[in-house]
Simulated scan of single mutants.
Amino acid sequence: MTAIRSGLLPARQAPATDDHPTDPAAAEEFLRAFHDAHPDAGPLAPRLSQVRADIARSGTYRHTTEELTHGARIALRDSGWCTSGVPWRHVQVRDLRGLRNASPVARECFEHLRLATNGGRIRPLITVFAPDSPRRPGPRIWNEQVVRYAGYPGSDGGTLGDPRYAGFTTAAQRLGWKPPARRGRFDHLPLVVETAHEGPAAFTVPRDVVQEVPLEHPDLPWFARLGLRWHTVPLISNLHLVIGGIRYPAVPFNTWFVGTEIGTRGLADENAYGVVQEVAGELGLDTSSERTLWRDRAIVEINRAVLFSFDSARVTVTDHHAETLHRLGSPRPASGSARPAFVRPADADRRAREGAPACFPLVARTSSAG
C-alpha cells in the first residue's frame, strides 16, 4: 500500500556530508513552496539570504519549526502510509532535533507510542530527531516499526513467532537483549538505535506502552482459541525524511492500520505467521488444490476477525476497500526534485529483517570518541 520512495536521492536532495554540503537550490525550491503555502510566514527574500549564508558558512542550515512541520506533513501525505481519515494538515510534529544519543531517542520513541495509542483512538504523530549535517550524522533506527514480534528458530526447522524477524531477533540478542524466560509467539523485539559515536544499542520496549488486541471472530467461536493478537499502532521507524536538501534519518511516524496489513500480510502470509492453513482446516475447506480458492476464503475470515476485534476494542482501524476509494480520490503528488519525502535508504529492509549491516563503521565511532 506504500508509495514511499526507495533508492538513491536526486542530486539536489542528497544530504549534507563533508564533501557535499546542502544544495542551496534544493533549499530554495522548498522554501519557495513553503512560503507559497504560508503567505503569513513573512517575506521570502530575507529568509533565502539567511539560508544561503548559513550554507556557505557551515555547509547546512536549520529549518524553522514551521518549515519542519510543513515539510513533515507534506511527506506524510504523499508517503502511501497516510490512511483515509488522517487529518494530515493538522498532524502534530514533535520537534526533538536536539536529541542525537541513542538512549533519549529510544525513550522518546516509546513516548511517541504512548501518545499515539491514545486509549485506542489512534493519534497520528511525527517525531523528528537530529538531522545529518557535515561531519555529524544523525541517529538511525534499525526496526521498520517500533513494535514487531520476535522469531525464534525451532528444533524442527520451524519458527516460533514471526519468521520475518528471526535474523533481527538473533542480532538483538548479540547486542545484549534477553528474550522472556518463557518464549512466545508474540514477544516484542527491542528497539535498536545506532549512532556514529555509540554504535548500535538495543532497548526493551516498555510493556505498558504497547496496546494489543486479542483476535476473535464475529461468527466463529473457535477463532479466539488460536491465540492471535496484534499491536494497535503502526509506528514506522526506519525511513528517512528529506526536506529541502536536509536529511532527518530518524523520524518515527504513525497513522493507523489497514486491516489487511495485519490479516493478510502479518497473519495469513506463509512468510509471516502463516495461519492460513490452520484457519482453512478449522473451516473444513478443501485444500487439495488452489483452484478451490480455499486460501482466499480463509484470508477473508482472518481479515473479518481483525476488523471485528479492533472495532470491538474501540481501536482505530480502516479496511482495504476504504483505502482503495481514498487513493482513487486523492490527487497525485506534484513532482519536484526537492519535494519533502520519506525515503527508504539502502539496506534498510535488510537491517530490519537481519539486524545487519551496521549504518556506521567502527572507525567512525573510534574517531568520534577521540
Results as ranks from 00 to 15, higher is better:
D311H: 14
V363Q: 13
E301Q: 15
W294E: 01
R100N: 13
H326T: 05
R121A: 10
L68N: 06
A313G: 04
R140I: 05
T22K: 01
F360G: 04
P124R: 00
A181D: 15
R89A: 07
F310W: 02
G59M: 07
R225D: 15
R52A: 15
G284Y: 08
A72Y: 02
P163M: 09
P249N: 14
L160T: 09
F310M: 02
P249C: 14
P104Y: 04
G263N: 00
D269A: 14
Y61L: 05
V317H: 03
Y149S: 00
T195N: 10
A26V: 08
G355D: 04
L160I: 13
M1S: 13
V128F: 01
Q50Y: 10
T2S: 15
A358Q: 13
A11W: 10
L125T: 03
P234T: 00
C109L: 11
L226I: 04
P190E: 05
G120V: 11
H321T: 14
V363E: 14
R107W: 08
G176E: 12
Y61C: 11
G336C: 06
N143L: 08
G355Y: 03
Q211S: 14
P163I: 04
E144T: 12
T60I: 05
A348S: 14
L68F: 06
D311P: 00
D219Y: 10
E144Q: 09
R73C: 07
F310Q: 01
L96R: 15
T17D: 06
G184R: 12
R291W: 13
F360P: 03
L9D: 02
P104F: 09
R182E: 14
G154D: 09
T127R: 00
E28A: 15
F129G: 02
P214K: 10
Q277D: 14
T366G: 09
G119A: 05
V233Q: 01
T60N: 12
G370V: 14
G259D: 03
S337W: 12
D187A: 08
G120D: 01
L96S: 13
A280H: 04
Y273G: 02
H112Y: 08
Q277M: 13
R148Y: 10
A56E: 14
V91P: 09
P131A: 07
R229N: 08
E108T: 13
N143T: 05
H326G: 08
L115R: 02
P43W: 04
W88N: 05
T65M: 09
E323G: 12
R77G: 09
R247H: 12
A196P: 03
D286E: 05
R52I: 09
P131N: 07
T64P: 06
M1T: 12
A202S: 05
F110L: 12
D36E: 11
D95S: 08
L31C: 10
Y273F: 14
H70L: 09
A27E: 00
T366V: 15
D36L: 06
E198W: 05
L44N: 02
P345F: 07
P43E: 12
L160K: 07
R73E: 07
R183S: 07
T169F: 01
R121V: 11
R297K: 15
A250F: 09
